[in-house]
């Protein structure tokens, strides 16, 4: 079993996918000889050349749209948006085109493609290199939205995404690229889209998260167990759409208490949908209101270090919220 960082997991899996499937092309800004600004595509250009690792003009709209066109004509593009913050010029193409091709043509035209985007704060990226943009896309029928946070999950889900008959948004938390290391099984495996994962078992409260806050929640849970003896079950959504409500509900039946944590701001965040579903479907099982802890409702993560710390739902804040829920 190899130990890899999240970044290595992305890079190695892209390499593997391109080796296995000659229809896969990687395209985006600086993905060629530079290997991507985060080095996620390092080595691909040398191995597969400029026809399969395409350095594009600095134009997100057409990175996605040209990718869509290639998907119609024999290719399976993996488009990289350099920072999720810059995905908005492509928003119309993703929402009105990529997501709707199958439905609007009654299945005649389909778009098997992946759009990768590093997201999230904690890297002193300020307003425009820190955003969490997933909730804009979980809202749109026709897109699978993934946000794995460990090397093993990245490998398994990227392998699945690369076989999907429909478009996949693949969000990678950039703070976790080098921070998280984990074991990746040597034998080939895939992780189905739509399957969550219990990252820490517990009986007292349920915590649902993804991305950087998932790791913070695990830290907080370990601490809380030590100090207060409260055992939190921490669920990693991994796939945001479709969300694994089966796994969440099973946990809620056990704990009766649930906290949803994400870095994206609170209002209209993906946690709102999860909370609404739990409230509708699991009302009789709940011993406390569904709670949420999320980024504040300001326009993205402000730059100055104390600001960033204020914004991010890190372990200490999650621990306090978990305690509040447990004591309810």
């Amino acid at each position: 079993m190899a130990t890899k960082t999240n970044l290595q997991a992305v890079r190695d899996t892209l390499m593997e996918i391109m080796e296995r499937d000659p229809s896969v092309v990687v395209m985006g800004e600086d993905v060629g000889p530079r290997g991507g600004v985060f080095r996620a595509t390092q080595g691909l250009y040398e191995k597969f050349g400029p026809e399969r690792v395409i350095d594009t003009p600095l134009a997100e709209l057409s990175i996605v749209a040209v990718g869509l066109g290639m998907a119609l004509n024999g290719y399976r593009p993996i488009c990289e948006i350099q920072f999720a913050d810059f995905i908005f010029p492509a928003f119309n193409q993703i929402v009105n085109e990529v997501a709707r091709y199958r439905y609007r043509s009654n299945g005649a035209w389909t778009v098997p493609m992946i759009i990768r985007a590093p997201y999230g704060g904690g890297v002193s990226g300020g307003l425009y290199h820190s955003q969490s943009v997933e909730a804009f896309f979980t809202h749109v029928p026709g897109l699978y939205v993934l946000a794995p946070s460990t090397p093993k999950d990245i490998v398994g889900l990227l392998r699945s995404a690369a076989q999907a008959p429909d478009p996949v948004l693949f969000f990678e938390h950039k703070r976790l690229y080098g921070l998280v290391k984990g074991e990746v099984p040597d034998e080939y495996y895939e992780i189905p889209i739509g399957e969550g994962d219990i990252k820490r078992a517990g009986d007292d409260i349920t915590v649902v998260s993804y991305g950087m806050t998932l790791h913070e929640a695990i830290k907080a849970a370990d601490k809380l167990a030590e100090t207060d003896g409260i055992q939190a079950e921490v669920i990693d959504l991994r796939t945001l759409f479709p969300p694994d409500l089966d796994l969440i509900y099973e946990s809620v039946r056990k704990t009766g208490k649930v906290l949803i944590v994400h870095e994206d701001n609170l209002t209209g965040g993906w946690g709102a949908e999860i909370a609404a579903r739990i409230a509708e479907d699991m009302f009789e099982w709940l011993d406390a209101p569904v709670m949420r802890l999320a980024g504040p409702d300001v326009p993205a993560v402000p730059y100055a270090p104390p600001f960033e710390k204020w914004f991010l739902p890190l372990a200490d804040k999650i621990e306090a919220k978990m305690r509040e829920l447990a004591e309810y």
Partner: peptide, 12 residues
């Protein structure tokens, strides 16, 4: 027809 059949998606 919003999504196509796919063996690697588990619809909860």
């Amino acid at each position: 027809g919003v999504f196509g059949d796919f063996h690697l998606v588990k619809w909860p």
